[in-house]
Design a binder for these strands. Sequence first.
DNA 1: TCATTCAACATGTCTAGACAAAAAGAGCCC
DNA 2: GGGCTCTTTTTGTCTAGACATGTTGAATGA
Lengths: 244, 244
Amino acid sequence: MSRQKEPPVYRQLADTLTDQVRHDFAAGDLLPSESELAERFGVNRHTVRRALDELVTAGLVTRHQGRGTQVVDRRLDYRLSAGSKVTHNLAELGMPSETHCLSQNLELPPGAIAQRFALQQQGCLLRVETLRYVEGAPLVRISHWFDPRRVPAWRERYRGGSTRAFMDQHYGLRLKRRQARIEALAAGADDSRWLLCAQHAPLLQITSDNIDSTGALVEVSVSRARADRFSYHIDFPDSVKEMS
Amino acid sequence: MSRQKEPPVYRQLADTLTDQVRHDFAAGDLLPSESELAERFGVNRHTVRRALDELVTAGLVTRHQGRGTQVVDRRLDYRLSAGSKVTHNLAELGMPSETHCLSQNLELPPGAIAQRFALQQQGCLLRVETLRYVEGAPLVRISHWFDPRRVPAWRERYRGGSTRAFMDQHYGLRLKRRQARIEALAAGADDSRWLLCAQHAPLLQITSDNIDSTGALVEVSVSRARADRFSYHIDFPDSVKEMS
DNA sequence: TCATTCAACATGTCTAGACAAAAAGAGCCC
DNA sequence: GGGCTCTTTTTGTCTAGACATGTTGAATGA
């Protein structure tokens, strides 16, 4: 194991092990023991542990005291290397994707959402959770909050697919976006589970108010996208916007 | 330090240090060195490091090699609860802030930046690094990349403050933003140092092309803002945009 | 005065060895 | 077979010391 220059040994070892795990191991397999790896690579066991720490935080393996280090189910990593087409216009996003429905319930919305609907509605809203796949990997998780009076019997009919198309088809609603708020945040446990990303990985969150042709608020959507696969692009045609 | 039963020493130490950091330290303070903590608590330095690892991943402190372990800014929690003024329009941002200049040099730009200037210039660009404070706390770190021919003798004159006002005053340049790209990413070592945030904390990065009145590209700016203190807001006047 | 050099100090990495704790399996007895 | 202990294997924790690398600030020198 090269030791002359950068990077540190545990980093190189982590990369090596990551490759091996990806190519030569299946989900559920046990890795060789730390002592064995240490001997095989000619480094101290602590260095192996430090390297394995990386794989653990990357979500590739889990450790069980007394049992061994086990390869976790993965799937997503292949996409990351094809990093160039990362820039999506949110408008294009609907097309080549597959949308799954995770849940749909009537719920009391959190304060920030309720506030937006405040003057029109103060009870429960219809919350529809969807997960959108692009090129086979999950890209964005969306919470749609609907005014339930505008989309009656939604839950009996909707089973997945584009909510936009569904609304158009069943309710004749074509929503426009009135405003959007863009934030960054760290992935929580739920996010990492659905988006197959590391916990605390950066996400791009977009909250938008969607109105019908009369200007009435029908939907507030909160989407969380994996930042490594998504960015948001804005063109300023020729407006007199200030710059920053 | 109790060692009879559970939990492990590093865990107890992590809890102790977490308390101390919360009560006896202010944002930006440096913790005692690892060796000093080791001696004070009667444990090995590695055990202290293991405990500090917990604080780092919890986002309470950041480490800087050669410098020390620094307490991260926590004031923003207050801000989050008073969640309303978190939303800044990037255009408003210039006003109540204080801008410090970190560095300014002629540099070979990275590929992504060079590409934007490609047809006009293929040598060095003027890179100006600024840090903007709002309400006394660092909010955003900006890399300005200028076409040096458009801002001659910049470095002899500029010492801080709004680059926008400076350009207007000295060069009669009033730039407009042509496009912007918004991404989320995790804070690196440099970011955490300047922005006083945790390493791997989510940042909102905005890359924008700024042109003069003739449409020529003069500046590309890359700003990284602490996601916990900043969000980006967009209004769609009455355009026929698609929603997502 | 200003810049350079250098030493002190901080975190980062690596090795070495020891024991603890949990899990799995072997062998035993009933 | 079923249940038991005991041994082995494996990860978890802790100590000890060494050197690398980055930062800072004081001493030095032009």
